[in-house]
Amino acid sequence: MTASGPDPVIRMEGLTKYYGRSRGIVDVDLEVRRGEVFGFLGPNGAGKTTTIRLLLDLIRPTRGRAEILRLDPRRDRVALHRRISYLSGELTLWGDLTGAQLLRYLGNLRGGVGREELGRLADRLQLDLARPFKALSRGNKQKIGLVAAFMGRPELVILDEPTSGLDPLIQQEFERLVEEVRADGRTVFLSSHILPEVEHLCDRVGIIREGRLLTVEAVADLKKRALRRLEIDFAAPVPADAFVGLSGVRDVTVHDGIVRCTVLGSLDALVKTAARFEVRDIHAIETSLEEIFLAYYGEEANIHAAA
């Protein structure tokens, strides 16, 4: 399904996790390449956090395997964790410690992080380091987690829902941090259920639903292959049944002489049908990844055929 990079940072082969009888993830094959920003997309409960926790050896796979930086998550955990960092989706830290103390503690556990680097990161995110963690707002807690994830120049930064709770300005700074990691040749693996956030950040995205990886694609390709929303303006009213049921065409609404629909893949059928009537105008409305994403969910069978 995925093109095999020369030096994958993350490789999952048939990675599967059941919690008793309930599904976590099933047969996930995925490679993340060095130097890319990879978005792991899916709604809540799809298996994003399960996948990440398997990579970190917080839980163990039912079957299949994962490899990070050519190391085994369980056997080589200490060597591996020195080179990666992680931001939990539901970040909880020791509430009585201040931001400065938390970052010092985590830095110590990691073998020491420069005071200067910490200060610089904290400044960029406008972090209040003096207050105890439990007294911070959700957004400020998240900032502490972000500093912890980016400090010490990890080769791989794993972020579970990193932008939840950040205000827009901080979001921008976060995006710059991600860019810097990419520019540095290091790798970011981030999960999200908020697609617009991923669209401009990621090189490639994997879409996971109900524990199964549906597709992995370059963001550029995904947008090119596009789901298009079209509005066709006819000179006279047209019958709806002419457009409903055309291949790749859906969400058809006909109002007087105006037909609105979305098209997945080829426009051929729609254009040929429209040509039977007098066309005044055609508008294409650019679709967000969100819509592409939702289209995948509706057309799961098509996607498997296409992939």
Partner: peptide, 9 residues
Amino acid sequence: DVLLAEPLE
């Protein structure tokens, strides 16, 4: 989770 994501057995 946070503790065990650090390089510790």
